[in-house]
Nucleic acid binder design. Structure first.
Lengths: 202, 202
DNA sequence: GTCTATAGCCTGATAGAC
DNA sequence: GTCTATCAGGCTATAGAC
């Protein structure tokens, strides 16, 4: 069991530790703003040790982005054509909002990437994101045709949910400043539930 | 007229040229991601010449941010307590949307700054943004008390407008990918008009 | 596998001629 | 006021001992 095996438990743990630290630093400072030194310090490892596990800073970033879009789209994938339309759409919004609360660093990593023009995931947006959205939009249009929910532009409906949920994660500092310290997400769920219920009720 | 005067027409023009170039580069790459070389190339000037007009890269960034928050908040300032509530709020939303169309680089500059935790404008958020929002929220609450518009959480209503309009500027790449090239802003105005009209109708 | 030391590049800023 | 040339510091990545 010791021979030339590639991946030990320790290696797995170290890779995970490094990615955790890299997420923290990339999310806070962006790709260029982050330094390998910072990531090493956050991981409690030496800089060359990081570059033993990942061939470059770029590789750490790529490893993070690779899984991200998939995770990010999971709530949309769960949208079920056979469920109750209003419950499905509200449920989607609430799951996205929970992700903003639970994974704000992932949200900011994603936002940074898109803001820079999505240089590293533009192809994934075209190949994975667009087909998925197209598919779900057809479901939503079916619900509208059947009169189950009010008719609105389905793509902009999805953009709207993305806009709201990203905002609470990415602009949290601003929202918190305006609210005087209160957690913006506290009132968000109720507000957004009301917005979309009112918008989509036939 | 030639003596020790400080600011000639040429100086003014050069400062403007540099800031225009700096806005372009900072918006596309963030503060750390931008290089003085890039800005110089975009401005058609030499690097030392830029640093003759601005003492540092930081100073260029600060000069851009300085005026930005003010400009950014102009539409909210225009919200008139004596106007028709629905028209005022829809008008505010539409003006913000126009700014996303007309000043996407300013929007991204702002987004970059907030994403990094607003290190350079956090005090302005507390000193200028919060009081202004508090003031306008009182107006909106007055309208709700009078039954002119439906009652919703006024702060989250404003966050919602910010979220939507920022999204169309900052995440344009993503929205365009999903729509297959069509300009996302084309359908946005009508969609958002419908959303807020439906939300706020008593 | 992990470290210290360092190579080599890039970047912000300055010196000094014109 | 504007340039060429260059410095000094910080950065990614590698070399090599252990």
């Amino acid at each position: 069991m010791t021979g030339t095996r590639g991946t030990t438990r320790i290696q797995k743990r170290n890779r995970a530790t490094i990615l955790e630290a890299a997420l923290e630093v990339f999310a806070a400072h962006g790709f260029r703003g982050a330094t390998v030194d910072q990531i090493a310090a956050a991981a409690g490892l030496s800089k060359p040790n990081l570059l033993y596990y990942f061939t470059s800073k770029e590789a750490m970033h790529a490893a993070l982005l690779e899984g991200l879009l998939d995770t990010w789209l999971d709530p949309l994938r769960a949208l079920d054509a056979d469920g109750d339309p209003m419950q499905e759409l509200l449920g989607y919004m609430h799951r996205k909002l929970e992700m903003s609360r639970d994974f704000p660093r992932e949200s900011r990593l994603f936002a940074n990437e898109i803001l820079q023009g999505a240089p590293r995931i533009l192809s994934a947006l075209n190949d994975d994101l667009k087909p998925l959205v197209d598919d779900k939009v057809r479901i939503i249009e079916g619900w509208m045709d059947a009169g189950k929910i009010a008719r609105v532009h389905p793509y902009h409906l999805i953009f709207s949910i993305w806009a709201h949920t990203q905002h609470y994660a990415d602009f949290e500092v601003q929202a918190r400043a305006v609210l005087g310290g209160e957690d913006p997400l506290d009132g968000a769920a109720q507000f957004l539930d009301h917005v979309y219920r009112r918008l989509l009720t036939p």
